[in-house]
Computed example of a mutant assay.
Amino acid sequence: MIIVMRAGARQEQVDHVCERVREMGLQDHPIVGTDLTVVAVIGDENKVDGGVIEQLPGVDRVMRVMAKYKMAALAAKDGRRSEIEIAPGVSFGGTLVPVIAGPCSVESAEHILACAQAVKASGAHALRGGAFKPRTNPYAFQGHGEEGLKMLAAAREATGLPIVTEVLTPSEVGLVSEYADCLQIGTRNAQNFKLLQACGQQPKPVLYKRGMAMTIEEYLQAAEYILAAGNPNVILCERGIRTFEDHTRNTLSLSAVPELHQRTHLPVVIDPSHGTGHARLVPDMARAAMAAGADGLAIEMHPDPEHAMTDGAQSITPEALTDLIVSLARVAAAVDRTCGAEREVV
Rank of each mutant, 00 (worst) to 15 (best):
A158G: 04
Q191E: 12
E157Q: 14
P162W: 07
A190D: 03
T187C: 12
K194L: 13
Y179W: 14
C182E: 01
N189D: 13
S177F: 10
T169P: 04
Q184A: 13
E157K: 14
G160K: 09
A190M: 11
T169V: 08
R188K: 14
S171M: 13
G174F: 10
T159L: 01
C182I: 00
G174D: 13
D181Q: 11
E166I: 07
A190S: 15
Y179T: 09
T169W: 08
E157D: 11
V164M: 10
L175G: 09
S171W: 13
L183Q: 00
E157P: 02
G160Q: 03
T165P: 03
Q197G: 07
Q191T: 11
E178K: 15
C182K: 05
A190R: 03
E166C: 09
P162T: 07
L168S: 08
G174C: 07
S171V: 14
I163T: 14
P162N: 02
V176P: 00
I185E: 06
L183A: 10
D181Y: 10
F193G: 02
T169H: 15
T165M: 07
C182L: 10
T187A: 15
A158T: 05
V173R: 00
N189E: 12
R188Y: 03
G174N: 14
P170F: 08
V164N: 05
G160T: 07
L161M: 03
V164S: 12
E172S: 14
G160E: 08
T165H: 03
V176T: 10
S171C: 09
I185D: 06
T159G: 04
L183W: 03
A158C: 08
